[in-house]
């Protein structure tokens, strides 16, 4: 249980870096555990742990320097043929609520997992996608802003 919570915390830290949303905002979606367990459910715990370990290494190497951390994320995760596609899936899951089937070359090399197909994690995952607040909007069909709000310029937070 302790390991689970520790790993979840690392996953949250990683998600903050990948999405540029604060841990407060990410936890506010209620999807942290859902996404974490989706990854484990689809491709197994060892792959998840590998991603988290690579992130921990990236952080250690960056030693608190933000620019260096971005570089390390590219070195340890995004350009890694095994961990890159999983990392990109984590980003996309946060923004749109979908798990995307991993690329064919990944599946050929690291295994075609039975549950690895493109799907919406859940109805709530769709409505909690971070893409919508990013563009000052809301998911189509949910969280409507109210009559005539659409006549004004969108409120987009500068990042």
């Amino acid at each position: 249980m302790e390991t689970y919570q520790e790993n979840l915390n690392v996953f949250l830290d990683l998600s903050v870096v990948l999405t540029d949303f604060s841990s407060y905002e990410l936890q506010g979606t209620g999807q942290l555990e859902a996404y974490y367990s989706t990854i484990i459910d689809v491709i197994g715990e060892s792959n998840m742990v590998e991603v988290l370990d690579a992130f921990t290494l990236a952080k250690t190497n960056a030693n608190g320097n933000e620019t260096e951390l971005e570089k390390q994320i590219r070195i340890q995760l995004l350009s890694n043929d095994k961990l890159g596609p999983i990392t990109r899936n984590i980003i996309k899951m946060w923004f749109i609520g979908n798990w995307y089937q991993l690329p064919n070359i990944w599946r050929e090399t690291y295994g075609a997992y039975e549950k690895d197909e493109t799907f919406v994690v859940s109805a709530i995952a769709y409505t909690e996608g971070l893409l919508w607040p990013t563009i000052g909007s809301h998911p189509p069909g949910a969280k409507a802003p109210g009559y005539a709000t659409w006549i004004d310029a969108p409120q987009i937070s500068k990042v």
């Binding site: 999405t19 540029d20 923004f95 749109i96 893409l131 563009i135 909007s137 969108p154």
Partner: peptide, 29 residues
């Protein structure tokens, strides 16, 4: 769109974090 924009920005344009968010605004809004 917008799914295809997100896929393009993450998978082809190799963006994450701040850059990803700015690119989403640029490509969708």
């Amino acid at each position: 769109s917008p799914n295809t924009n997100l896929e393009d920005i993450v998978d082809n344009k190799n963006k994450f974090g701040k850059e990803l968010r700015n690119e989403l605004v640029h490509q969708i809004s």
